[in-house]
Structures are given as C-alpha cells and as structure tokens.
Computed example of a mutant assay.
Amino acid sequence: MFFYVDESGHTGTRIFDPEQPMLYYGVLSSNVNVDALAEEKLKQLRSRCGVARLHANELGNGGLVAIAPDIVELQKRLNIRFDLYRVAKPDHSIICFFDQVFDQGNNPAITWSGYWTPMRYVLLLKLASLFDEDLAKKAWEARIEIHDNKAEAGLVNVCSELRARVDQLPDARSRQLISDALLWTENNPSEIYYNTKTKGDRLQITPNVIGFQSVMHGIALRIKKHGRKAAKITIDQQCEFNKAQNTLANFYSKLSGSQFANGPGLPEVDFGKMPTIPITFASSANSAGLELTDIHLWVFKRAMENKELAPELFQLIKRQLNKGHTDEISLNAIAARWKRWFEELPDPTPEQIERGKELLAIDEARRVKPNETNV
C-alpha cells in the first residue's frame, strides 16, 4: 500500500493560537502508486487551472469546484481512501499535565486504579473541569520549560491553584484523590519529571508529534485491515518536525510485530502491523499523492469546522463516508468514547464488590502514607 501524509494547523509549542485550535493530519492511501498513476491527470488539471501545483488554499472553493469531478474520478479509479486525525491543541496541555502529575509510577498519592484503569479518564475529565485557559497556559509553559527550577516553580503554582478549586468538584472521593495527588506534587515537584530538558524534547511533546503517533497507528490499522504491506509512506516535507516524525517512525518500526498488555479495561497496545519501511519526505511539488492529500485535507477540514464549502465539493467527502477513518485527541472525544464504555459495564456481583473493597483498602493504605509524611 502507498500512503501520503499532510498536516494543517501546526503551530509547534504555540498551542493556544485562537485561529488554529486544531492540528489536522490527513492520510491518503491506495493499493497503487498514486504519484505515478495520478500525475498525468493532475498535469492536465494544473494546466486547466493555470497553476504550477494544485494547492487547495490558493484555489479555494471556486477553483476546486472546477476540478471536483476529476478528483472524484481519481478516487474511483485509484480506489483512494482518506483518513483524518486531529488534536485539540489547548486540551493537549491538560492531558499532558494529567499524564505527568497523575502517573502512579511517579506519584504515590494516586491510586493504582486511578491511572492504570479506565478510571483515569474519569479523574482526567474532573481535573480538566478545574482548568481555565490561563491555568492551562501556565501548565504548558512549565511543561516546555527547559530550566528545572523555573519549571518546578511553575508546576507548584499550577498545582496550588488547582487545589484551591477542588471544592468545585461534586463528589468527595474525587476531591480527595485529586487534592492528595496535587499536594504530593507540590511537596515533591522534582519527582514528577514534568518538564522537557532540551529543545529536541520539546518537539517530541508537541501536538504535531502526538498526532503523528495516531497517523502511524492508523497506517498499521490499514495494513492489517487490507492484508497488505506498506510499499511507501510519503510525508509532506517541512523542516521543523520531520526529524521528530522520522525518530518516532523508526522507534515504532522496531516494535513491529509486538503487542503489550495494558491495565484492566484499557485497550492493548498493538504494534503488530506497524510498518518497517523507512518513511520518505517529499514536497507536494514532486508528489501527486501529496497534492491530492492537500486537496482532501482542505475540504474535510472546512467541513468539520463548518466553514464555507461549495456544495459540489461534498462529493469528495461522500465517497469516503464508508471508507475513511477519523480519530481525535481531545477532552470531548475522551468523554464520548469512555462514557459509552462505562454505560455498557455489567452490574458487579456481590462477590466482586467485596473483592473490590479489599483491594481498595490495600491500595488506600499504601496511598495515604506519602502525604501523611509530607503535609
């Protein structure tokens, strides 16, 4: 299979740009080499539009309407599939904060089940309700701060402000767990390993690289679904994040063929069909596949953001409704996904309830000790 990957809305560590709240990745795939087989047709369309390359942002609705039937014809002839991944950038700050501060491996004040089971998403969403934009910005600034002393001071400040808001939560157990975890962090900020250490580390935690993780897992899912191997993966060439993307792809390729168990109720981490071929970086000026990815990404992005989109362009989306795949990293997406999981849980038996109480008592005895000695 051949894959072509483009992104839109990237701002690196500047994740609170109100003009670009979402980072998008578009992945166009086919069983055939789109670069080779679409080039002649795209050459004709470029000539018709009077441009050197077909850039959706430059063509706009009017320019794309004129070539939409030709793009649909390419979709059919080359059996093109288009997958979309996006990251809500402001939410990324809060999710990062939770993953670092509430990691039970670092913070003994959190319960084992509060991090290693789906209960983590309950705590995450309750914690998120305490954040406003200003506090989320402070958490992110501390996360990307290279100097430890500044980062730890910022982290302590954020934890203190959050603890002052814990009373807003409706249930006593959430207030207790979240308050205890925050207090332990205030007393032991260096034990959380919260901040990045180098500029390279900064890139690894940006929405661009987090979203690219979804892209790689999506490619692996396509390979598994269609029973084929990856022949080529072409990424849009842009200097800032290509190195980090390449590092991640190489790391994943080494894990290909493996699966890792997760906590109870959490999905298995599956690298079984992760591609092992090196990824290729190219410009859309030299890749018909990337050219088509740019067009699809522009159309899908405008549709999802409810921006003006010519009715004639919806035919590009229509053909992908039963073929394409979408995924999102955001607080809303997490809430929707795990609400359904909790609603479908069967009622526990009396024996399970008793066993759960026993395990909770053991974990609680372990958990309360750290703050007893650090308050």
Rank of each mutant, 00 (worst) to 15 (best):
L255F: 09
V122N: 02
Q238W: 05
K41G: 06
D363T: 04
D17C: 08
T280F: 14
N33I: 09
R366A: 10
Q213E: 12
G211C: 09
R366W: 02
S330W: 09
I192Y: 00
P69H: 10
A261N: 10
A335V: 03
S8G: 09
E305M: 12
P207S: 09
D103N: 15
Q168M: 13
S29D: 13
P370W: 07
R222I: 03
I210A: 15
G60I: 11
A36M: 12
G114F: 07
I178Q: 04
G114S: 08
A66P: 00
D35R: 08
L127W: 04
K273V: 02
D327K: 03
Q352K: 14
Q20I: 00
K301L: 01
L360I: 09
H296I: 01
D180M: 06
D91Y: 06
I95N: 03
H325P: 00
Q176D: 15
I295D: 05
T13I: 14
C159Q: 05
R46K: 14
P207N: 07
T373V: 08
K339D: 13
L155Y: 03
T280D: 11
I192C: 04
V368K: 09
G9D: 04
D35I: 15
R165S: 03
W341G: 00
Q44G: 01
A285T: 10
L162H: 07
Y252P: 01
A220H: 04
L360M: 12
S258F: 12
V215A: 08
Q176G: 01
A335Q: 12
C239D: 12
S179A: 11
P90E: 05
P207I: 04
N322Q: 13
P118I: 09
V65P: 02
E372K: 09
L125Q: 03
P346H: 10
G356D: 03
T349K: 13
D327H: 08
V34C: 07
N242V: 11
R163K: 14
N79M: 12
C239R: 11
I235F: 15
Y24N: 08
N374L: 14
S287Q: 11
L359A: 14
E328F: 01
R143L: 01
L359N: 06
K229A: 13
G265N: 01
R77A: 14
S283P: 04
E268H: 06
S256G: 11
G154E: 03
G257F: 08
G154I: 04
F16P: 06
Q75M: 10
K301C: 00
V156F: 01
Y194W: 04
K41E: 14
Y25H: 07
E58G: 00
G114P: 07
N208V: 06
H10P: 00
K307D: 13
A365G: 00
K243H: 09
E305C: 05
T196M: 13
F3I: 08
L266C: 03
R302L: 02
S30I: 12
F131Q: 02
E358P: 00
A109N: 06
P275D: 08
S29E: 13
P170R: 12
T13V: 13
K357M: 13
L42Q: 01
H10C: 05
